[in-house]
């Protein structure tokens, strides 16, 4: 299996993206941003479709649309986007825009399928390099911001009382989330970005009450899910995304039994 370059690319990119999503996911859950992560994926779909229309690399449009959205949400405050109605409106609008851009670009359904459902085994060498660089950049940026982000995520009232720059932290984290969503979309697709960004972190939360261990468990479970998905996908020819979601869901329900 690993003798094929496309599988090597899938394992390498998948592992790094999973580690990043597992770690970012702990903060997504703590900050109750699951649905913003999901909204980003729909915004990313519109961005990728826009790229196709204007002849860019789809990833450029993904990053542009999600990044701008992160800045807009950061300025308005995430509370506005925790409202059901706001999320529904934004989801619908960007899904509609995505469909419009694809229609104008007269694009084949294969592209739609790869954006919506992921295309981990279709990742090129150049994609791998880009994913490695971006994932490492996100993880490196998290190191100096870790303490403040942890404080603000798990005890926002305390962080504000302690005088932390909470608005800056919020915008910074949303930008990192935008990058994570854009990358995860390549692995599991827009519709299943939830999988890597929330389920491993939710499982880890059941297993420990230490923040550091939560990050380690979440990253490990996300990586394991990608490895299981790629291996079973290779041998059965069933969709990799299905195996990743099935594995992560199974782990989540099992970890509920071990809730501390």
């Amino acid at each position: 299996m690993l003798s094929y370059p496309f599988m090597q690319h899938a394992f390498l990119a998948g592992t790094l993206v999973a580690a990043m999503c597992g770690i970012i996911g702990v903060f997504v859950i703590a900050r109750s941003l699951s649905f913003i992560a999901h909204t980003f994926s729909h915004i990313g779909f519109a961005g990728a479709s826009f790229s196709v229309l204007v002849g860019w690399n789809p990833f450029a449009g993904l990053l542009l649309f999600t990044g701008l959205s992160a800045l807009a949400i950061g300025r308005l405050g995430v509370r506005v986007f925790r409202r059901d109605a706001s999320i529904s409106v934004v989801l619908s609008l960007f899904l509609g825009l995505g469909i419009l851009f694809l229609s104008l670009a007269n694009k084949q359904s294969g592209f739609v399928s790869s954006i919506l459902f992921g295309s981990v085994v279709g990742i090129s060498g150049a994609d791998v390099v880009r994913m490695v660089v971006l994932s490492l950049a996100v993880l490196l940026l998290l190191i100096p911001g870790y303490r403040m982000l942890t404080f603000d995520s798990f005890d926002p009232a305390g962080a504000e009382a302690a005088g932390l720059p909470i608005r800056l932290l919020s915008i910074g984290f949303l930008l990192l989330l935008a990058i994570a969503v854009s990358e995860a979309m390549q692995i599991v697709g827009a519709l299943l970005v939830f999988t890597l960004l929330t389920i491993p972190a939710a499982s880890a939360r059941c297993l420990t009450n230490s923040v550091l261990r939560m990050l380690l468990y979440s990253a490990a479970l996300a990586i394991l899910g990608v490895w299981v998905g790629l291996t079973l996908g290779y041998y059965t020819n069933w969709p990799v995304s299905f195996f990743i979601t099935a594995f992560e869901s199974l782990v989540y329900f099992l970890s509920l039994r071990f809730t501390r």
Binding site: F154, D155, R205, C206, T208, N209, S210, V211, M214, R260
Partner: peptide, 8 residues
């Protein structure tokens, strides 16, 4: 919230 009092 699964954060220990010491971490908090």
């Amino acid at each position: 919230l699964p954060i220990s009092a010491a971490d908090f």
